[in-house]
């Protein structure tokens, strides 16, 4: 993938992940600012409802904040047994972590 090297590439510690039921999503965007490490962003494309849906970048902590605020039950959250380092593009510009949530 030739153009990859053109971007800033970082390895980000990733402690969890989410599953997104993108067909249920109504594109309200509430999950985006709710995510403390800011690893969610809205897609360019749309689902069959016509809604943009969240996309997950590297760095998820499995904190469940996105799930807690989602009105449409589109998100399932997992925590990894061992943290992994994932490649991320521009991941360093993600959130400050001041939204940390303990459920």
């Amino acid at each position: 993938m030739a153009h990859r090297g053109c971007r800033a590439m970082t390895l980000v510690e990733t402690r969890g992940t989410i599953r997104i039921d993108s067909e249920r999503c109504k594109g309200c965007e509430l999950c985006i600012p709710a995510c403390p490490p800011r690893v969610l962003r809205m897609s360019e494309g749309r689902n069959t409802r016509g809604a943009r849906v969240p996309e997950l970048l590297a760095g998820c902590t499995g904190c469940s904040a996105c799930l807690l605020v989602c009105p449409d039950f589109c998100i399932e959250v997992y925590q990894y047994a061992e943290p992994v380092m994932l490649e991320a593009v521009n991941a360093s510009e993600s959130g400050s972590g001041d939204n940390e949530v303990t459920a």
């Binding site: 799930l67 998100i75 925590q79 047994a81």
Partner: peptide
């Protein structure tokens, strides 16, 4: 940079929500 969020994770993990 977008991770696949369609299925269950392949890594060893616990569902917490």
């Amino acid at each position: 940079d977008v991770l696949d969020t369609h299925g269950r994770p392949t890594r060893v993990s616990t569902r917490v929500g």
